[in-house]
Amino acid sequence: MSDDNILALLRAREQEGLSYLLDKYAGLMKYIVKNTGIENDEDMSECISDILFTIWKRINKYNQAKASFKTWIVIITRGCAIDYLRKYSKHSNVISFDDINEIPVSDNSYLNGLENNLLYLLQELSPPDNHIFYKRFVLGESVTEIAKDIGITQENVYKRISRGKEKLKDLMKREGYRYA
């Protein structure tokens, strides 16, 4: 089913839409959630359920002018996974969005921030380093994985991520976004 049709179902408050959404994006959600550090099946299903519930609640806040539906889902997924981890996992050696602690990541501030500003800023991170930045912070992939995938050294990945963060900081400054 197309994103437009799923979106229409969800906006019409048809729960069937969640089922189609899951059919299409469950695997991607699982990939992101797993990258965020949630491994066991029970937590995984609870977290993805949180994601669906968040999408259900916030569907009317989705703005096509800011991002594609898929991007919005990916961002919600990552945000919910981080929130889940913060809420339920006391001991985790996960590297997350916290690494860029200028970006608020918890519950409302994270999602509200995304819907208001941050999503725009992430959209604007330009090549060549944006791809690596997205893989790291949007999909939650490890530096090792990224280095292997792209065929560069881990040090190089870190450098490019660092450049991405600097660009993001500049964009945030430009928008009057406050960061520590």
Binding site: A67, S68, V74
Partner: peptide
């Protein structure tokens, strides 16, 4: 600019399963 959209567009859902 919609760089993030371009990025997510290139992710194939079929690469992942549940």
């Amino acid at each position: 600019n919609r760089y993030l959209d371009e990025f997510t567009e290139n992710i194939l859902e079929s690469d992942f399963s549940i």
